[in-house]
Nucleic acid binder design. Structure first.
Lengths: 216, 216
DNA sequence: GTCTATATTTTGATAGAC
DNA sequence: GTCTATCAAAATATAGAC
């Protein structure tokens, strides 16, 4: 009986299923450990334990710890600007901003490990972010800031510094996922629930929309 | 000529100057390294290098790495609630909030290492914050939230969830110091200057004050 | 592709001379 | 109090059998 290896046609399995799945498992585990410990604080053994693979197998797929770290960054940055898609010139600023805040908070809650990993990398000085990745983020920020500046020019919202405006939204929305212990403690709860994120969305959107003169 | 040791009166120096100064040097260096690397990622050697002392001397003053970490936390928490002092019932909310935002941003800029250390500890799950320290933070947050709730009741500002309101202010103000690479990149600068913090203060206070109906 | 065993380096922590 | 030398444990990374 032919096993799962070399099934059907002889020779190598062209679909490369096993390798792809194991790489995925390693990267998923790595995001979580790196998020909590950073590059220097992370032990390969801990990544191995968390994904149920022997340490040597981790080294079979990635040759150094840094290589895993770099792959994780690459993987994460693909989704960094996703929420920005809501900020378009044709939309009403009121609706666009409200949806943007919800999307960012949603990401912070559902992908807390990724969000913390990114926060950790920034905290350390962003030394592993490539020049190209920084330029990409700059370009996207510039484009969406232009949209806000357009809204201001058209009198659709009060004048604000668009970049500082976005930084404020990032800060307010990332905080709940990244610094959950601090937020939970302030709310006198042991951990945050969906309802807390909803309350956060309400407070942030109310203040921000009112704050730039686009309230209902 | 009598040296600095055992000056004037014989026997031990009762002022214990040397020990105190070295402890200070170690803790100052430790804040910075812990802020960038976290507990697990920090090497005692790096702390020693940064304060110009041999590694063995660090162990003379502190017996384990964790002990240094705990001392740093203790030292930092004494100033955590400092800015809250501006939030008092007798003050005008408009002025109190504006001063609070400036004070937090100032701390974020001038004590970036301390701020990042704290952020790092939260990111890792706040496992080294004692129950007592958490309760202190809860109490202070509760007290100042009551002040905001009082302002709302008196019709001095629009209704907001006071705790989420404070979380938003913490987030917006800490962001610049903690995640400087991200903020600087968004502003297309290599690093933040005092002027950028001023612009941040303007944007935050304008939006927040407008946002809760206490604008000029 | 998987996994045990191990080589090599680094690190937390200590001993003991000054 | 200071500092060199060093131990014991842990970590990165590799070898090589299956």
């Amino acid at each position: 009986m032919a096993g799962q290896k070399a099934a059907r046609r002889g020779g190598k399995n062209p679909e490369d299923k096993v390798g792809a799945r194991n790489r995925e498992k390693i990267l998923r585990a790595a995001v979580d450990v790196f998020a909590r410990k950073g590059l220097d604080g992370t032990r390969i053994q801990e990544i191995a334990d968390q994904c149920g693979l022997p340490k040597a197998n981790v080294y079979y797929y990635f040759s150094t710890k840094q290589e895993i770290y770099t792959h994780v960054i690459e993987h994460l940055l693909t989704g960094w600007d996703k929420a920005f898609e809501h900020i378009t010139p044709d939309r009403d600023p009121r609706e666009a901003i409200a949806v943007y805040v919800r999307a960012k908070l949603d990401y912070s809650r559902k992908h807390a490990a990724e969000s913390r990993f990114f926060a950790n990398e920034m905290l350390r000085g962003a030394h592993f972010l490539s020049k190209q990745q920084k330029l990409h983020m700059q370009r996207v920020t510039r484009e969406r800031s232009a949209v806000v500046e357009g809204w201001v020019r058209d009198g659709k919202m009060a004048p604000v510094d668009a970049r500082h405006f976005f930084i404020m939204l990032w800060a307010a929305t990332q905080f709940y996922g990244d610094f959950e212990p601090l937020a939970a403690n302030a709310l006198e709860k042991s951990k945050l629930a969906k309802a807390d994120y909803d309350a956060a969305a309400d407070t942030i959107t109310t203040i921000v929309l009112n704050g730039c003169g686009v309230s209902a």
